[in-house]
Structures are given as C-alpha cells and as structure tokens.
C-alpha cells in the first residue's frame, strides 16, 4: 500500500498508485485546503510543496511522491510571514485561490528572500485569481519579504 508523507504525518493510502495527489489529499486525507480549479496545470489552485518545491498536485500521481515530503496549506504555520502579510493586507476576496497563492508565495520567498516585481510576476503568474486580488498579493509578498529579512531589502 502506498503512503503519503504530508505535513509531517505519514498516511497509508489505499488508492491506485496513478491516482492524482490533489484528489487523494482532498478526498482520502480530508485536507480540503488544497483546491481544484482546472486539473490541467493552468490555475495553481492545487499548489503544494513537494520536498520544498511548489508543484501542481493535480498533475502528480501518488506513485511519484512516494518517499517525498508533501506540505499543504494546512502545514504552513499561522505565524509564517506570508500568512501574516496576507491577513495584514486583507488579500483574499472569495479566498478560493489563496491556498495555492500562498504556497507559491512561500516557495518564492524561500528561493528569493527579496523578490522584485518581475520575480513576483514570474513566480505567481501560474496562480489565477478570478476575483482579481493580484495587486494585494504583490503587496503582501513584499510585506512578507520585509518581515523575513528584518526590513532590509
């Protein structure tokens, strides 16, 4: 039987090993923070981290993540500067896209602690927001970056 290592917990899962990670996380583990938006790597709603890298969970099978560490939105601590910045800037509207947005933003800041607007465009353009919260996402990423780097930019 396959197992999934999610947010520090190992879950045995009785599913075909070509099952898409997104749906296993949602339907079998009950972690519904990770969202479905397109199923074809177009929207980023399903973004999770696999060994620290942002990936579209709708495109990944259970087999491909055996032995890897998966982090979902539920695994990002509430004290994380990105989550705090999101609250500070009241970024979400409907909120549906934001678990994915936050997972992409967290990964971006890990790679680039002080991202430029161009870095943000590049890292975040795979995450759609139909409510149109992009301006606040950008602002919150800059805010989180400042918090993380202690105000130095």
């Amino acid at each position: 039987m396959a197992s999934l290592h999610v947010n520090g917990i190992v879950y045995p899962v009785d599913v075909p090993d070509d099952a898409p990670l997104l749906w296993v996380i949602r339907e079998k583990l009950g972690l519904t923070g990770t969202k479905y938006g397109c199923g074809i790597a177009q929207c980023g709603s399903c973004t999770v981290h696999i060994d620290g890298k942002p990936e579209r969970s709708c495109q990944i099978t259970v087999r491909e993540v055996q032995g890897k560490r998966i982090t979902t939105i539920e695994g990002i601590p509430d004290t994380h500067p990105v989550k705090k910045a999101w609250i500070e800037d009241d970024v979400p509207q409907c909120g549906y896209c934001h678990p994915g947005q936050i997972m992409s933003a967290v990964a971006l800041l890990k790679e680039k602690p002080s991202p430029t607007d161009a870095d943000i465009d590049a890292a975040m353009s795979g995450n759609l927001c139909r409510c149109g919260t992009y301006q606040r996402i950008r602002r919150a990423i800059h805010r989180a970056a400042q918090a993380k780097t202690g105000g130095k930019r």
Binding site: R26, E27, K28, L29, G30, L31, T32, G33, T34, K35, Y36, T72, I73, E74, I76, D78, K83, W86, I87, D90, V91, P92, G95, Y96, H98, P99, I102
Partner: peptide, 27 residues
C-alpha cells in the same frame, strides 16, 4: 475594518461548497 473571513481563507480552513460532505463521500 479587517475582514472577518480572512484568517480562515488564509489557513485553508474556510469550507467552500466543494469541501463539504466529509471524506469518502461518493463523487
């Protein structure tokens, strides 16, 4: 005033229609 629903929408706990019904419900 800060939105009351932001914290739940930031930590993934906000329950949308697609999230209702619990694990293992038939799809």
């Amino acid at each position: 005033v800060k939105r009351l629903d932001t914290p739940a929408k930031v930590n993934g706990s906000a329950v949308f229609g697609i999230d209702a019904g619990g694990k293992d419900i038939l799809i």
